[in-house]
Nucleic acid binder design. Structure first.
Lengths: 349, 349
DNA sequence: TTGAAAGCGATACCAA
DNA sequence: TTGGTATCGCTTTCAA
């Protein structure tokens, strides 16, 4: 196994100089550096991560904490985004999944104990309760939240502007002429917080702002179909309920695309025409949304993760960051699942 | 920063004993071990990964090498599968993406240089050419292939039985009464090998086995629509070609679900009824397949990755493995995109 | 700009 | 079953 020492000898310099040259510190004379680099190349040498880490205290290891599997639209996008900015700087981006952590405690204990071993943490969709928060802040390890609103224990955070998103959805529906609108919640299967949970509230707020009467706005809560298994069954029930109601909304905003698409299908099975009878708006713009012609509020988690990763990188380098809280806007992608309501059409016909 | 030494002192033992106890080596008296464990707990202590790695030579770091983004159906599943078996043993599973590596050389050089820093490698969908192969075998680091047929430089591999898969597809189509069948290739956007590439050949073989005449089997090669951007355009062209042909196949096997679904949509836009006019079979059973009612050959990459990871774990532990080559079977999932051909139906009507 | 030497925090060998 | 000690390969003062 070739070591830094071998390289130094071959280049006729001291270990320290070789180390400096290889790491790109600019206190090395160009000539010397070149000599060392070529020695290193000819020996196929690369620094030992563990030795470097041990000596410097920097582990070049960033933890990405998930509450759901990695092969999920959002999680995978986070990994990709973080990878894109962190990998080039030599950071390992290490996924960690919290399984049964109903109590975030176990998790924070683990983190606490890992103190030596982590340079930074990215927390996608994590809710911080006061207890774990203390732990986190005692960590002294840069931590940035992703899809989380800012908390004092976070050094920075990148969050989706769900409020504006809901506002634009409601505005769009009003513009189309809808007078009875609804919001469908999604059961949170993630053990942590997802900012999606706050969308319902913002939807109501927005409806109020745009002068919808309380009676004309209906929220279908997640509790109604809280299941671990398939969404088909509960959403089919919901569809039946909606289809058979007289004063059903003519437009539905659904917490995310996955549920929106299933609901759309279930409604169609009942003979409900979309968008003629009911317009549907999803959230995310995942791969299926385009396929199904679903109008949706598009978010780009890869992009968000890149921003979070860049913030973390700055933090780890000790650089100042511009602002602690970064808000990301969604954009409304209009497709075939929305239109003016039937009444409106008839009237204008 | 608390160290092993602090724990040892608190427990009144030597560093060595503390180390042994904490790592679970069974040459420590239970009483002693307990004492040490509680000392460690009270200090919120965890071993330093870098120090352990440096001293032991084991880095607890496994590289997963990709030729495509992580937020991809297959890649994300590989990560998840590997995570499920490797994480509990304390391994970091670190994704590495090869971007421009048209020449695998750069990549293998990097690997070679990382010798110190890696305990094991999982190679999903990697093609090994003879040049890089030498490099790999000189690595002396356990390497297992995933979705790759066995190569002498791999210590083990897990592969999809594409041959059987194609056979079952052809058999199924024959059973349905199809007499003209076709296979649609997919442009490989991965810089590496995907076993998908061999499916076309196996399809032809299977057709021969089942006595399809050469004239009744058509392969639509990937070259026809080799693009980097969207698949829509080339597949719409292909759809037009098929729709306007007199002796078009009545059943199409498509290299993967993604392409199958797009093709299906393009055909429908042209008025082609599926499955009445043309039956379609995909491959993968990704999330969209069920949504679109696509008959497909289901593979489970999470499962495959778990097997690969287990093999790697055994290899890294120095345990013997049962066999170097593990074949995984696909299963045919029948949905609404396939049926008997129209002629058959008319005949039987 | 370069070199010498003291750690970094564990593991593993050899003794006891 | 436990302890003493050399060692892993690099970074980082401090001096020159």
């Amino acid at each position: 196994m070739t070591t830094l020492h071998d390289v130094a000898q071959l280049a006729n310099v001291s270990d320290s100089t070789a180390s400096r040259a290889l790491r790109g510190l600019d206190i090395v004379r160009p000539k010397t550096r070149a000599k060392i680099k070529s020695a290193a190349d000819s020996l196929h040498f690369e620094l030992s991560r563990s030795a470097s880490a041990l000596a410097s205290g920097r582990t070049m290891r960033v933890i990405m904490l998930f509450g759901s599997p990695l092969n999920t639209w959002f999680s995978a996008a986070c990994m990709q985004g973080a990878y894109e900015v962190l990998a080039e700087s030599g950071y390992d981006i290490v996924p960690v999944i919290l399984k049964d952590a109903t109590n975030a405690n176990e998790f924070f204990n683990t983190l606490l104990k890992n103190k030596h071993n982590i340079d930074g943490i990215i927390l996608p969709s994590i809710r911080l309760d006061s207890h774990s928060s203390e732990d986190l802040s005692s960590l002294k390890i840069p931590t940035v939240g992703l899809d989380a609103s800012f908390s004092p224990v976070l050094n920075a955070s990148v969050a989706l502007d769900n409020k504006s998103a809901m506002r634009s959805a409601v505005y769009y529906l009003q513009e189309l002429g809808h007078e009875r609108i609804g919001y469908v919640q999604y059961p949170n299967r993630n053990i942590f917080f997802s900012s999606a949970e706050e969308r319902g509230t913002f939807f109501l707020q927005a409806a109020k702002e745009y002068d919808f009467s309380q009676a004309s706005v209906h929220v279908y809560p997640a509790k109604d179909y809280e299941v671990n298994s398939s969404l088909e069954e509960p959403l089919s029930q919901l569809a039946r309920r909606i289809a058979s109601s007289d004063a059903a909304p003519t437009a539905l905003c659904v917490e995310n695309d996955e549920a929106a698409i299933i609901l759309m299908r279930q409604l169609r099975l009942l003979g409900v025409k979309i968008p003629e009878d009911i317009s549907i708006i999803g959230f995310d713009d995942n791969d299926n949304a385009e396929l199904m012609g679903l109008t949706t509020l598009k978010q780009d988690p890869v992009h968000m993760a890149k921003i979070a990763a860049q913030l973390l990188k700055d933090l780890m380098a000790g650089n100042p960051i511009e602002r602690k809280q970064t808000w990301i806007q969604t954009s409304l992608v209009k497709r075939e699942s929305t239109s003016s309501p039937r009444s409106e059409r008839t009237a204008s016909a």
